Amino acid sequence: MVKRDEIVEFINNYLEIQKFKDSGTNGLQVPGKEEVEKVVFGVSASLELFQQAVKKGADMIIVHHGLFWEGSRWRISYLLKGRLKFLFDNNLSLLGYHLPLDAHPEIGNNTQIAKRLGIKITGKFGEYQGEAIGWEGIFQTPKRFSGLVKEIKEIFGFKPWYLKSGKDILKTVAVVSGGGAGIIPEVIDKKIDVYITGETREFIPQAAKEGGINYISAGHYNTEKFGIQALGELLKEKFKIKVEFIDIPNPL
Results as ranks from 00 to 15, higher is better:
Lys55Trp: 00
Ile246Asn: 08
Gly32Pro: 12
Asp247Leu: 07
Gly108Lys: 07
Phe158Cys: 00
Tyr195Gly: 03
Ile7Gln: 05
Val243Thr: 15
Lys236Phe: 09
Gly179Leu: 06
Ala218Asn: 09
Gly227His: 05
Phe203Asn: 03
Ile11His: 03
Glu210Met: 10
Gly157Thr: 06
Pro31Phe: 04
Ile152Arg: 01
Pro160Tyr: 08
Leu67Arg: 02
Gly130Met: 10
Asp193Leu: 02
Ile246His: 05
Ser46Asn: 05
Gly179Gln: 00
Thr172Val: 02
Ala208Lys: 06
Ile169His: 14
Val173Pro: 04
Gly126Thr: 13
Val187Cys: 14
Leu92Arg: 01
Lys120Ala: 13
Tyr14Asn: 02
Asn12Val: 05
Glu151Met: 03
Leu80Pro: 05
Gly134Arg: 07
Met1Tyr: 14
Ile76His: 03
Gly166Leu: 01
Trp74Arg: 07
Ile204Asn: 02
Tyr195Arg: 08
Ile213Ser: 09
Val8Gly: 08
Tyr162Pro: 05
Tyr14Asp: 08
His65Gln: 09
Ile228Met: 07
Gln29Pro: 06
Gln129Ser: 11
Ile107Met: 09
Arg144Cys: 11
Lys171His: 13
Gly179Asn: 00
Leu231Met: 15
Glu34Asn: 11
Val176Ser: 11
Asn26Tyr: 00
Ala103Tyr: 05
Gly32Ala: 11
Lys242Arg: 03
Tyr195Trp: 07
Gly123Trp: 00
Pro185Glu: 12
Gly108Pro: 01
Ala45Trp: 09
Gly66Leu: 08
Ile204Met: 06
Gly126Met: 00
Leu163Glu: 15
Glu9Ser: 15
Leu101Thr: 03
Ile107Leu: 04
Gly178Cys: 04
Glu16Leu: 05
Glu199Cys: 01
Lys120Pro: 01
Leu170Tyr: 13
Gln29Ile: 11
Gln129Ala: 09
Lys21Gln: 09
Thr141Glu: 15
Ile169Asn: 15
His98Pro: 11
Ile246Trp: 13
Tyr14Glu: 10
Gly82Phe: 05
Leu252Gly: 09
Met60Lys: 03
Leu148Gln: 10
Lys209Cys: 00
Val39Lys: 10
Asn222Ser: 11
Pro185Gln: 10
Glu106His: 11
Asp193Ser: 12
Leu15Phe: 08
Ala181Ile: 04
Gly180Cys: 11
Gly126Trp: 08
Arg75Tyr: 07
Asp247Arg: 01
Asn91Lys: 14
Ile188Ala: 06
Ile61Thr: 04
Gly211His: 12
Ile183Ala: 05
Gly182Asp: 06
Lys153Gly: 14
Lys81Phe: 15
Gly211Val: 12
Leu47Asp: 13
Leu95Pro: 05
Asp22Arg: 00
Glu237Ile: 05
Ala114Asp: 07
Ser93Lys: 04
Val194Met: 06
Val43Lys: 02
Gly211Asn: 14
Asp22His: 02
Ser23Asp: 03
Gly157Tyr: 07
Phe20Val: 06
Gln51His: 11
Ala230Lys: 14
Leu235Met: 02
Gly219Asp: 14
Ile204Gln: 02
Ala230Tyr: 11
Leu15Glu: 12
Gly179Thr: 04
Gly166Met: 08
Gly66Phe: 12
Glu199Ile: 06
Glu106Gly: 09
Phe158Gly: 10
Leu94Cys: 04
Thr223Glu: 14
Asn26Val: 09
Gln112Pro: 03
Leu84Ser: 14
Lys242Phe: 00
Phe239Ser: 12
Trp69Lys: 06
